[in-house]
Amino acid sequence: MTEELFVELFTGLLREMIRIRRFEETCAELYSATRIRGFLHLCIGEEAVAVGVVGALSDVDAVVSTYREHGHALARGVPMEAVMAEMFGRSTGCSGGRGGSMHLFDATRRFYGGNAIVAGGLPVAVGLALADHLTSDPAVTVCLFGDGAFAEGEFHESANLAALWHLPVLFCCENNRYAMGTALAREHAATDLATRAAGYGMVAWAVDGMDVLAVREATERALAYVRDSGQPCFLELRTYRFRAHSMYDPDRYRSKDEINRWKELDPIPALAARLVDQELMPAHDVEQWMAGVEGEVDAEIAAAVAAADAAPLEPVEHLTRFVTTEPGDARPGVRAS
């Protein structure tokens, strides 16, 4: 790659991570102001995974995610306005306001949610990949889930099925070392998740999930492998959440020291430092550039909040809409226009 391409790649990744970070910070504020309700799970600290994995996909690929999915949705290109409106419960939200923070959907972008049952999306990802396989579609289905989900039977059943049937699934385990308050070593007898996944007969490896370049590169390799071989693949992305599990979580189960140690690995300053270290940009320019990006991103967020605020609520008379298919509703195989 030429130097300009490196700069473009680095700044592109950095920009998107900053965008997600600022968005999440705004969500936390809006939650405290009771504008966003329900459960809210932030991905602050884990932006390198969202940006590195989801940003590497092509439009034909599908994404299945969890309740900690704002970053995944934004990286997938779901418009910020639609994500924010969803959290405000407005009809202009990406799920029509019905789902809220944990249930972001965007069928046109093949973003299949937003699942709040831990591991609940995994079997569905297998099914999406099965359909792609049966119709010879070259798409890969990427399924993001946590280290906690890895303990569920649904993960193990899905991994076996995908390997057994040779399905194009990319399993991305976002290992942030905790399932709510339960530390990795208290949920798994063997904590090397990639090695265990390999036991299902898949190519699997662990990646530094705080390093967006490493995540990006691993994802590209994994995607190429899945597309070429038609076999599933597993990435364990080792990361950390800087905030509590959700806004309800008093975070009693880990030490400030531990959190601070991980904050030193913050993917955003880490990548900014790489720009300087690799002599792609002088330190002063990086600082200026970042300040500029923050300004742009904050403007985008402010516009999204304002739009969400002004957006309409769905009329109460529509309460029982979207339970079963009604005329004009989407049906499988019939792509929404």
Binding site: R37, R90, R98, E314, V316, L319, T320
Partner: peptide
């Protein structure tokens, strides 16, 4: 309860 999966927005949840 109304025969609908419980919706997120406050006004619809109340109505459900």
């Amino acid at each position: 309860g109304a025969e609908v999966p419980v919706p997120y927005p406050h006004h619809l949840e109340e109505a459900a």
